[in-house]
Design a protein around this nucleic acid. Sequence first.
DNA 1: ATAATGACATGTT
DNA 2: TAACATGCCATTA
Length: 128
Amino acid sequence: MTSFKEKVIAIVQSAPYGKVVSYGQVAAYLGMPRGARQVGWILNATENSPGLLPWWRVVNNVGYLSIRGTKYHDKKLQRKLLVSEGVKVSEDFLLPMSVYRYRPSIDELKKFQLGKEYVDFLITKYRL
DNA sequence: ATAATGACATGTT
DNA sequence: TAACATGCCATTA
């Protein structure tokens, strides 16, 4: 069972310590370039199994912590966790994507089992 | 089955 | 620049 949810988890887990990834990126690496919103949905509904899912490394495309506050997580905690990893997040919950965006290598992308042409598309989109 | 609800992204005003 | 509108699709009710 390689459900959407499991893929989301796998991709988010690939985001390294001290880096962040956008919802759109996660969706794109899933092979669903317009599924950003669904990624957020999954994270919102998934209870954080301690240490298994680095949900705090997912932000929106402009570097803003767009989480509104849910039963499991909240914006302030996310900021705290990111800061603890060395990511500089401003008081208004904004961080510079140009500095912290996770840019997977080609090999890492292959791990997600995507077609060659699609990989090329991702490269132009996120300038890997 | 159908409709409503989002931790989004992008294009247009 | 910032606000608004629209497309998106997994999940729930």
